[in-house]
Computed example of a mutant assay.
Amino acid sequence: MMTQSITRRQIGNEAEPLVVIDGFASDPDALRTAAAEAVFVSAGQHYPGIRAALPDTYLRDQLPLVARALGREFGPCRRIRVVDAQFSIVTMAPDALDIRQRLPHVDAYGRDRIALIHYLSPTNRDGTAFFRHRDTGFETIDETRAPVFFERLGSEIAAAPPQGYIADDTALFERTALVDAAYNRALLYRSYVLHSGAIADDAVLWSDPAVGRLTITAFLAIE
């Protein structure tokens, strides 16, 4: 039986909740086997890599633990609705990224939307970083902040386009937290927190799930 531990912390000046769960799935090796047999395709949109469908049982098995791990820090929750969930592997070379992939991002604006990342590589340690926009001080982007944030960010990147993946402090963003990947570790945080995959400059971005940066990424709504 896999030993589980749940660590709760608050990050940045805005003290957003971040939950780290080690030993997240009871059989991570079975998930790796499923990924090896899955058909991966280009993720499209903003994700710099490929994605594939999950086993049907994954969310059924994991949602009770997610509900327990969320606790009270994320607000009242009567049920969790799955918006999207897939195997994911980052494969895009740093010099092939478009401008949106070179910056911290948010996945949704509402406080009721939760992101889940489940790391499934035994060797890759490239985790997830969280950021503060220096000019505005924003660490989260909601519908009210979005117009100001994107207007200022557009001016900044026009003057000095960023290069490669962002994993640490830059002229435009200050890193507020970093969680390294570890086998069978999962993160939960609000989708409107500025974040990015912390991909090392020298990372070898294999598309093979046996050796690549294999994760499960899911987006949930708490209702």
Rank of each mutant, 00 (worst) to 15 (best):
A182W: 03
L214S: 02
A221Q: 13
R9K: 15
A167H: 11
Y58R: 09
L220E: 12
A218W: 14
R185T: 01
L103N: 07
A210Q: 08
P48G: 05
Q62Y: 01
I166S: 00
G71M: 10
E14S: 14
V41P: 04
E174G: 06
T33L: 11
G164A: 05
A186Y: 04
I199N: 03
V211H: 05
T57M: 01
E174F: 04
L65R: 11
I216K: 15
D95T: 12
V19A: 04
T136W: 10
L120K: 01
N124C: 13
V41A: 14
A96C: 11
T176Q: 05
P161K: 12
M2T: 12
R79P: 07
T144Q: 13
L54E: 00
Y109G: 01
D208E: 06
T144L: 10
A160Y: 08
P104G: 06
A15L: 12
T215Q: 03
A167G: 13
T136V: 14
L18W: 06
T91F: 00
V148G: 05
V148K: 13
D107A: 09
P122K: 03
T128A: 01
A36K: 09
I11E: 07
A200I: 01
H195L: 08
G197V: 04
Q10H: 15
V90Y: 00
T7W: 05
H46S: 12
M1G: 15
S42C: 06
A35D: 00
I89L: 07
D112C: 01
R185W: 02
V19W: 07
D202I: 03
R9P: 04
Q62K: 05
A67G: 11
F149E: 09
L31I: 11
F149G: 06
T144Y: 13
A52P: 02
D22I: 00
G12R: 09
A38S: 07
R81I: 12
R145K: 11
R152K: 12
I222R: 10
Y58H: 15
A43E: 12
L194E: 06
A38P: 02
